[in-house]
């Protein structure tokens, strides 16, 4: 369990680090403000919306998976 958590974190880092420079470059020389979501024609808002939609669908898929697992156990143990 501990091992799988560590490999999960490593995987996330491995996928995100190559991308990070693109995000990091957006820091301007003006005083720091929470600009990120308003830049580049507000594309980040769209990205956030898509991420939320995808996350919602995946959470639903996971919950269906768990329900089915529980039902399988219930049926096979009877």
């Amino acid at each position: 369990m501990k091992n799988s958590l560590r490999s999960f974190i490593l995987l996330v880092l491995g996928l995100l680090l190559p991308v990070w420079h693109a995000v990091a470059q957006s820091a301007a020389n003006a005083p720091e403000m929470a600009d990120t979501l308003r830049q580049d024609g507000k594309i980040y808002v769209v990205v956030a919306v898509i991420a939320v939609v995808l996350a919602g669908l995946l959470v639903y898929l996971i919950s269906l998976d768990r329900k089915l697992t529980r039902l399988e156990k219930e049926v096979h143990n009877r």
Binding site: L15, L16, A22, I43, V47, I50, L54, A55, I62
Partner: peptide
Amino acid sequence: TVVLLLYTAVAGLLL
């Protein structure tokens, strides 16, 4: 699957 798809959505639109 979850990690790859969320990565696809975010990096796919921003990279």
